[in-house]
Design a protein around this nucleic acid. Structure first.
Lengths: 282, 282
DNA sequence: TGCCTCCTATAAGTTTTCATTATGGCCATA
DNA sequence: TATGGCCATAATGAAAACTTATAGGAGGCA
């Protein structure tokens, strides 16, 4: 028998009671409804009592659930306090990280700012690079860490995440136009060829409608309806939305985003901390 | 980033500090040392600080670890309180469970007694049965639940656990004797044939040295050195120990222990609760 | 110094767990 | 009755966690 109540399960339970519905809670937690339904049942199995009364209109607390709720809140609060209460080592020094422009629109810059506020003696630098520039920047010591397409790295990455490459277009863009107008990064861009070959395999014609080396320009061109492009999910923007795979837009392969580290920085405490932060964000 | 500290990880951390060694803690928790080593690192990744100072003599707390420790204790204590504090539904009625004699030596009878103490209005009955008797007992309503070899059940079990079938012998018993003397349950016992065929495949000769329908008698015969037998891990006893697989004792197949439930008891609250208890014990 | 033992970390492979898609049932509202 | 929202279950596939095997480092002792 499980001795301890899992905090993850308690968190789910809490959100379900707050929102009054498993479906809504699932959406809020970024899960599907069946997943949450199962987890909830797992918690009930551990406790040995039904915690939520299911109905067609949503869920409500049972007596056992009402009794558990304050414990859940207290445990989760303590967990948060614990994380905040642990003394952090004093960090100092300088660390530069190279990233793809695609990641500049994410929570990554904000996380870097938070880190800097927490450790005033450090200087963190975020450098937007092309994948092809990464190796040189690492070798020269310009950056200590790099997050980019694993294909561009010299050796296997220390760790990596798979990210889908998506078609992006303006809302209501008609992707059936033939030949398909493409908005693309200028060479060297590895993802260009991925798009081209996917289109070839699907027997689809295309033409380059616009080309630029800047993500902002790409965004603007797509937003203006000049054509479709391929982007990472993190690079979508206002007025530029992911277009579903269909007859006219073939599926694209996933991209492996890997982390590389300058060997000379091995053992550096600040670099360790920054790498840990990146891994948690990924 | 993980928002919550997992109670399982905190429990491991706590045990490591108490015992001063990852290896000892792993043994105490019924895990292997690498598993615990990894979990500990996972916790440190979440917290973002080293919690334990590793040394050749064991582990000791770092400053961050010392800060986290009281939180860990408090969270785990709250978790226990929560489980104890949830009001239990008043249960009443009668429930009989059929089990193999092999399980009478486990914590199962004690758990049944605890359950009865917690729910004074209930009558629980534990019936030791042969696998072959299970179906009749269920059909007649003699029992509502049964835990036995899945092969004996009419339909697929509601759930099951795989358990290894082991060779059992007296300590220092010489298993190289030829032909191998066997102590066996009388027919009908499905495991007899499993043992026989395993020996045949290994080209090993055997003879039946003792035969009985009672587990106690089997234990006594094995303890006296009359021969070896096959038992579930839960059926080992004083003076009867598991004999490792070797040249003279071939590997045996696993047994699938399944739970069957009388269809008429579907929806019965007490039977639900007892089934839940059995599942947690399994 | 050399050997032995006890400890921890890492790697590779396998099993288990978890989440997703797909589907069906139930209740309320129109 | 039809329709939409909500929950449960089943089956598949991906991810996580555990296990075995192995390597490396520090202390105890001849």
């Amino acid at each position: 028998m499980a001795i301890d109540l899992d905090t993850g399960l308690l968190r789910n339970f809490l959100v379900c009671t707050r929102l009054g519905s498993i479906s809504r809670a699932a959406h809020a937690l970024g899960r599907t409804q069946p997943a949450l339904s199962q987890q909830l049942r797992r918690l009930e199995d551990i406790v040995g009592e039904a915690l939520l009364q299911r109905a067609a209109t949503g869920v409500s607390l049972t007596a056992a659930g009402a009794a558990l709720l304050p414990y859940a809140e207290r445990i989760l609060a303590l967990s948060g306090e614990a994380l905040a209460g642990v003394p952090r080592a004093k960090l100092s020094g300088r660390c530069s990280v190279g990233i793809l422009e695609d990641f500049t629109g994410t929570s990554l810059p904000a996380a870097f700012a938070d880190f800097g506020r927490l450790h005033p003696d450090t200087t963190l630098e975020l450098v937007a690079l092309l994948g092809s520039e990464t190796r040189t920047a690492l070798d020269s010591g310009r950056i200590q860490l790099a997050l980019c397409d694993a294909e561009f790295l010299e050796r296997p990455p220390r760790w990596s995440v798979r990210v889908p490459l998506l078609w992006a277009a303006a809302e209501n863009f008609d992707a059936t136009i033939d030949p398909l107008p493409l908005v693309m990064f200028s060479e060297p861009c590895r993802w260009r060829s991925l798009a081209f070959s996917a289109l070839s395999v699907a027997g689809r014609c295309w033409r380059i409608a616009f080309e630029s080396g800047s993500l902002t320009a790409i965004h603007a061109a797509v937003r203006a309806g000049l054509g479709v492009t391929t982007l990472l999910p993190t690079a979508m923007a206002q007025g530029v939305v992911s277009a579903p795979v269909s007859q006219s837009l073939p599926a694209l392969t996933d991209i492996e985003i890997g982390l590389a580290r300058r060997p000379e920085s091995e053992g550096d405490v600040l670099t360790n901390a920054v790498e840990g932060m990146l891994k948690q964000l990924a």
